[in-house]
């Protein structure tokens, strides 16, 4: 186990190194890059590289020309919104996906199962930005049920924290719904498949024959055993949802890091784009890493390795 963990950690360190280096070398290699006009009076590349690394350690990501502020500051103030959006939708689609997946498997072939299956497969085919635009038109404009843009109404005094939180949730609803619906399919199908194979097992059949309650069986026996393959892929799915925020935030003008990405692309603000890139890359790596550790804790076979 020890060597396994060490190999993995070394792997992550290498990837972090690659990502950081990519961030350094891209602007210096690419024809469309902002530095293409630079003359030879700049210091040698190695020297620049070391300076860059040292700056990075100090949280210096350069200056965002379009926001007229240090990239680090811009990222920090946007980050909480992305965390809120990703966090809430991830919590929802993981719990809901597992729940509905289990229900679907239990009711295999029945109307509920087929309905859910079709719904989630079709929803998963929607690009998040397209679904988001439809939601703005229908729920935001036609029905006027939800705010169309932004994260909160700052100029209204709710006098209590509760009112403020309600306002934030009101703004969060459509973006989070978009992200949830476009991400839920994978976890739903995974649970369904995994459950189906478990439900086939003898001990479940026995339990069913014994006449134990449906939910009891699902919770105590089936879900427990179906969980392992789900966790291995949670990281993958979370990665999808994290990058999904780039598109969702763009459509809803939700003030997170994802919106910064499209803003930076439109304004050709490369330092900001690179900063946002580091954020997304590290966020996904962190999720992957956590999922790896959890998997090891759960799976006895991995421990024996």
């Amino acid at each position: 186990m020890q060597t396994n963990v060490i190999t993995k950690i070394v792997g992550y360190i290498i990837i972090i190194f690659i990502i950081i280096s990519l961030n350094f070398f891209l602007p210096r290699m690419m024809p469309a890059g902002p530095l293409s006009g630079l003359t030879s009076s700049t210091p040698p590349v190695l020297e620049q590289y070391i300076t860059y690394m040292v700056d990075l350690m100090h949280g210096d990501l350069g200056w965002s020309s379009s926001k007229n502020a240090p990239v680090w500051d811009v990222l920090i103030r946007s980050m909480k919104w992305t965390l809120l959006l990703v966090g809430s939708s991830t919590a929802i689609y993981i719990s809901l996906g597992i729940l509905l997946g289990a229900v679907s498997a239990w009711k295999k072939g029945k109307k509920t199962d087929v309905g859910l299956l079709v719904l989630f497969i079709v929803l998963a085919a929607f690009p998040p930005f397209f679904l988001g635009m439809l939601f703005i038109i229908y729920f935001g404009w036609r029905l006027d049920l939800f705010p169309r843009f932004g994260a909160q109404t700052l100029y209204i005094d709710y006098s209590t924290a509760f009112g403020t939180i309600l306002d934030i949730l009101h703004h969060l609803f459509l973006p989070a719904l978009t992200l949830t619906l476009t991400s839920i399919g994978v976890i739903y199908l995974l649970t369904r498949n995994s459950m189906l194979s478990v439900l086939d097992q003898e001990y479940i059949q026995t339990a069913r024959a014994k006449g134990l309650g449906e939910w009891y069986i699902i919770r105590r026996h089936a879900l427990k055993n179906a969980m392992l393959p789900i966790i291995t892929l949670v990281a993958l799915i979370a990665g999808l949802a994290i990058t999904g925020t780039i598109f969702v935030e763009t459509v809803f003008a939700y003030p997170g890091v994802g919106l910064l990405v499209s803003d930076a692309i439109a304004a050709h603000d490369y330092p900001l784009l690179q900063g946002a890139f580091l954020f997304f890359a590290f966020a996904i790596l962190a999720v992957n890493f956590t999922a790896d550790r959890v998997y090891e804790l759960l799976d006895p076979r991995v421990k024996e390795d």
Partner: peptide, 29 residues
């Protein structure tokens, strides 16, 4: 625990936002 962590994360960012809100003055009456 994982779920809790996620929810906490949400609640935390919500609080951060709400807190910043709390310091503000002069809103529409």
């Amino acid at each position: 625990l994982l779920m809790m962590a996620l929810l906490l994360c949400c609640a935390f960012s919500g609080m951060v936002v709400a807190n910043e809100e709390g310091e503000m003055v002069a809103v529409a009456e």
